[in-house]
Design a protein around this nucleic acid. Structure first.
Length: 498
RNA sequence: GGGCCAGUAGCUCAGUGGUAGAGCAGGGGACUUUUAAUCCUCGUGUCGAAGGUUCGAUCCCUUCCUGGCUCACCA
């Protein structure tokens, strides 16, 4: 697909230190809630490193490991309260809260996977519950259970936490559906089974070769490296703290699983300007899907990755966004239209690229007007941004109906509108229109601000707007004439009545 | 307390071992033309502090100060 891969310098440096492979680049995310832009950063870090390795001619497998078998831990906002009865159950076995997918896990995973496709991400998406059910983790699970004492010791030494007496690296699923809270009593290595006591003390048997349970998170991390043959995995800073999951997994990998610790990149978090770090539980969530509404996939890559993912990033999709887009497009296109102008055009003509092209040509953006397909996309980005993210000052829309605000126009302004309506001619360009609007105001002895205010009020319901000449010229002349005549007559008549 | 990141012009941030940069804001000027107008023009700031390495450091090392985030399974 994309022959010239985007490889930032930091990714190149990481790749240099990773050896000759073959490589398995892994990124893992739990679909316990919305998979947001912060999660995307992890995937993009992995992608960039995978690309850097590929560019060096190395063999690379790029894997997205979705932790679908993980237990539901808490009820996120927007999830029905009665879901608390599912706490402790695997996400892959909890129903979709909105009923639109096969499971809770799929409900959140599926849209993210769709986003990855739209970004042309060449990644294998694996679901952990399927891996367990297919026996992919059988060997490492057996190994873990056999080394229960060593694993427990590492956990206690590294995390400083006293593990329960009956701690086991394996969490069998009880008949109730719970994958936490059981006590493993006996290992039957020949049958891939464990005998355990469930939360009520009943003895049951679980077949770990068929996904009837899972490894505990910290052990699973190290086991996963071995099973997948991972050579690189990025981690957010919450995992890389002293005593954190990477600390324990590193030792488990080396001492128990005899597997070399994969390369690592520690990335900082993304914040939303003015709102703080993303958090599903606080309702501060920015979805990648939303971001693709206002920018192309490659722009999203650069925005999320930032200059260096090891540094925190404050995402500004408001006032700062046009500048970002201009910088991005300056690299991609020979003659980019300033995004702010595109926003004006989009709001003036709606989604019709033909009309937008006319407007852009008048403004001197010949290049941008030539490719209608591309223009249609850009207009959509601009319009979506204007509706959802733009500061108020950017936003306007030509009213379908006569705005109520015209009631505030005085007699002079109405006279002005009538005069303009009488002078407007088809085919006038932006400059000619600007002259007409201005000279008419002067002739009637109106201040430009007053005159232009009337015009904006009549068309937009606001006192100000985009540069009037090209704006009015971009509209249908008949529509403008009709609107102006209507408003001037209507309000004048109203005053006479009074 | 541990970890990561940051501390450069009013603000947001680039940046390089060899005389400090951009955008915005602000000052001045131009334009008979509203608009977050447009065009031209203006930036000596202890590059957080102190040491060290070096012919030379804002950039490398050490220590310290300040701020942000993070720490047992929400990147």
């Amino acid at each position: 697909m994309s022959s010239n891969l985007f490889i930032p310098p930091w990714a190149e440096q990481v790749a240099e230190q990773l050896g000759t492979g073959p490589h398995v680049v892994v990124t893992g995310i739990s679909p316990s809630g919305n998979i947001h832009a912060g999660n995307l950063r992890e995937v993009l870090v992995a992608e960039a490193v995978a690309n850097a390795l590929k560019a060096r001619g190395l063999e690379v497998r790029f894997v997205f490991h979705a932790d679908t078998i993980d237990p539901l831990r808490k009820i996120a906002p927007g999830i029905p309260a009665d879901y608390k009865s599912y706490i402790g159950h695997s996400l892959s076995r909890v129903p979709d809260p909105e009923g639109c997918h096969d499971s809770y896990a799929e409900h959140f995973l599926s849209p993210f996977e769709e986003t990855l496709k739209r970004m042309e991400m060449h990644v294998e998406v694996l679901r952990s519950h399927e891996l367990y059910e297919d026996g992919f983790y059988t060997e490492v699970t057996r190994e873990a259970i056999e080394h229960t004492e060593a694993l427990r010791r590492i956990l206690q030494e590294v995390s400083g936490r006293e593990m329960p007496k009956h701690w086991s690296p394996y969490l069998p699923r009880a008949g109730s559906g719970q994958v936490v809270g059981a006590r493993v009593l006996e290992h039957l290595p020949g049958e891939n089974k464990v005998v355990f006591a469930d939360e009520d003390g009943w003895e049951e048997v679980a077949d770990y070769g068929r996904g009837e349970g899972k490894l505990g998170w910290r052990v699973e991390l190290a086991a996963r490296w071995k099973a997948l043959g991972a050579t690189f995995e990025p981690f957010g800073k919450d995992h890389t703290s002293r005593g954190g999951s990477t600390d324990t997994a590193d030792r488990m990998a080396e001492e128990v699983f005899r597997y070399p610790v994969p390369g690592r990149y520690e990335y900082e978090w993304i914040q939303i300007k003015g709102k703080g770090a993303m958090s599903s539980s606080k309702g501060i969530v920015l979805l990648p899907q939303e971001m693709l509404e206002i920018m192309p996939p490659d722009a999203l890559r650069r925005l999320i990755l930032g200059r260096d993912p090891a540094r925190a990033l404050d995402l500004d999709l408001g006032a700062g966004f046009p500048r970002f887009m201009d910088e991005y497009r300056a690299e991609v296109e020979p003659y980019p239209v300033p995004f702010a102008h595109l926003v004006t055009v989009a709001q003036t003509v709606g989604g019709e690229p033909e009309k937008a092209a006319v407007m852009l040509r008048r403004g001197g953006y010949e290049e941008a007007a030539s490719d209608l397909a591309e223009l249609r996309r850009d207009l959509a980005y601009a319009r979506n941004w204007a509706e959802k993210w733009a500061p108020e000052s950017y936003r306007f829309g030509v009213r379908e109906e006569v705005p109520l605000e015209v009631a505030n126009l005085d007699a002079e302004q109405r006279t002005y509108l009538a005069a303009v309506a009488g002078r407007l001619e088809d085919g006038m360009d932006g400059e000619a229109t600007q002259d007409l609007l201005y000279s008419t105001a002067v002739e009637l002895g109106l201040k430009p601000k007053t005159a232009f205010g009337a015009l904006y009020t009549t068309l937009l319901g606001k006192k100000s707007g985009p540069k009037a000449g090209s704006f009015v010229a971009g509209l249908d002349t008949d529509f403008v004439r009709e609107r102006f005549r209507h408003v001037s007559g209507l309000t004048t008549a109203g005053e006479v009545e009074d």
